[in-house]
Design a protein around this nucleic acid. Sequence first.
DNA 1: ATGAAAGCGCTAACAA
DNA 2: TTGTTAGCGCTTTCAT
Lengths: 342, 342
Amino acid sequence: MANDKVTSQQVAKRAGVSQSAVSRVFTPGASASLKTTDKVRKAATELGYRPNVLARSLITGKSRMIGLIVAYLENQFYPEALEKLSNALQEKGYHVLIFMTSQTTVNIDTVLQEILDYQVDGIVLASVAMSSDLAAQCQMAGIPVVLFNRSQDDDRLSSVTSDNIGGGRKIAEFLIAGGHNKIGHITGWEGASTQRDREIGLLEGLKSAGQTLFAREVGNFQMTTAQEATRRMFDVAEPDRPDAVFVANDHMAIVVMDVLRSELKLDVPGDVSVVAYDDVPAAAWLAYDLTTVRQRANQMVAETVSILMDQIATGVKDSRRLAIDGPLIIRGSARIPEGWKK
Amino acid sequence: MANDKVTSQQVAKRAGVSQSAVSRVFTPGASASLKTTDKVRKAATELGYRPNVLARSLITGKSRMIGLIVAYLENQFYPEALEKLSNALQEKGYHVLIFMTSQTTVNIDTVLQEILDYQVDGIVLASVAMSSDLAAQCQMAGIPVVLFNRSQDDDRLSSVTSDNIGGGRKIAEFLIAGGHNKIGHITGWEGASTQRDREIGLLEGLKSAGQTLFAREVGNFQMTTAQEATRRMFDVAEPDRPDAVFVANDHMAIVVMDVLRSELKLDVPGDVSVVAYDDVPAAAWLAYDLTTVRQRANQMVAETVSILMDQIATGVKDSRRLAIDGPLIIRGSARIPEGWKK
DNA sequence: ATGAAAGCGCTAACAA
DNA sequence: TTGTTAGCGCTTTCAT
């Protein structure tokens, strides 16, 4: 019966060795004879002993915990990323300590402080607005920070995003090739780097073709806001109505399509093409069948973990900033240009 | 500049007091004069000192971490619950340490052991198949365990679920009142208590009306499996085709509706009524507009936290097993009986 | 109310 | 390879 609170001391006594011998057996790079190892392991399993990670952390200075700060899990992209991140870290012997910074929470810096109290070995900041440069301070204090799906002008911080500018441009090219010339944009939260970059790419693409943005409304990455934005943009006389719209993420695109079809009786893609960003699972659901730019969550997570592990191992020296290219996934929500390579 | 690794020792020196005085100032129930408190707080902020939670844990035996074991985050119900759980615990000064037990993971007991190594103050097991009675051992060893959205015959363990039997019965009654007499069931994973109970309720309800289950296929709570199940159940000649189906959760119902409509060209609810369980956000999306039994995530989380806090405070004495009633949310995926009270 | 001292469970020198 | 010793940063008696 595995009782809690079995100490290495007790195991030592039972195995007839010193307490440090027990420690060595359970410490990866330590030396112990086969004989001792056997005795200790035997006693340990009999007593149900397992090392106390916290006590170990106190002395090694490594907690083997990574703090994750995330604002909301409603957008499917985040739970997906969290799942992959947690799995990837578990494989390396790390675990994720979660901190939500939802509406109710006072502010992010408070949360960052709290997370530091736990002596985490690294921090992942997912889609969070950072008021201060506290994160940069962490980085400087030697604790690795990586911005996930978000970047910042401050290049002291590492970040992993998709190639949002490239993605925006791909969308513009696709829409233009499809013969659209009244292209609208429903934006995310304008304070987000992802929003900024996606729009930059979109505008660049339009400009190359001699077009400009036909309409623009702010959706804030929120469903309700996007809903109203859609009405403002599309509940107008035909000539003023966009024939295509780039919605800044899939999460909003769902409700955009709902409003377009159920409320305004517009056909997608007959009357208006809808293209979005992320390729969350729901984008593939047939009722939406959304053409969208894929964010390679697997790769983004892998890079995030890689940065973290490198910086933990060798110390925080410099920052890496990655923008991972993602393909446009062609589905049925937007008109497909003649002979377009899938 | 808040440097890491500022100790209470350093603060003490700067404030001109003893190290224990510093500790007292940062320990809730301790006594310190206003004068000392001021001096200490001042020195602390100047140095950027914050207590090391891990060191504190070592002595108090409380880590203020709750371990969450969860299998997959794809079903929206879980990220939603996780978000609420994390928020609720944060308010009480606790934080969630996540452990995924996805396909790749060896087995749950290993994970449970790992989580115990971190000295968590409590464990939430969400929708996980437990092979052994290790969880019961934890409970006995004094560490609170609560099964979330899952129960078990072993009543040593606390659990919080929705009233799955009642929910299943509500669905039967609703479908029967709607005039259906060929009711099918696409099940979840048959090893799950939620599945078992929902089906028990369904069968009870059918029996009361003198009906029996018209068709049954296993969906395993997985989209791909549910897809095949739907084909087997509905790709048949009309007389053998159910006129209604209870899908064991919303997550599967999405794909069931997709197959029904896009692949088999059946109208929902014209040709077949679809009812499910959970009321995840996607159930309300107009393209699905799913009639479903709501699981009150807020309340389930609140109860989970309450059990945890009680048991942490007073010790694990007995177990509580809660089944929270949830309403049937009537939407458009199923025929609505004449004069049905919404 | 405060300081000195002990010790939570462990790792990491240091000798032997 | 092993035991002894000294802490990691903190809380908590115990005196004062």
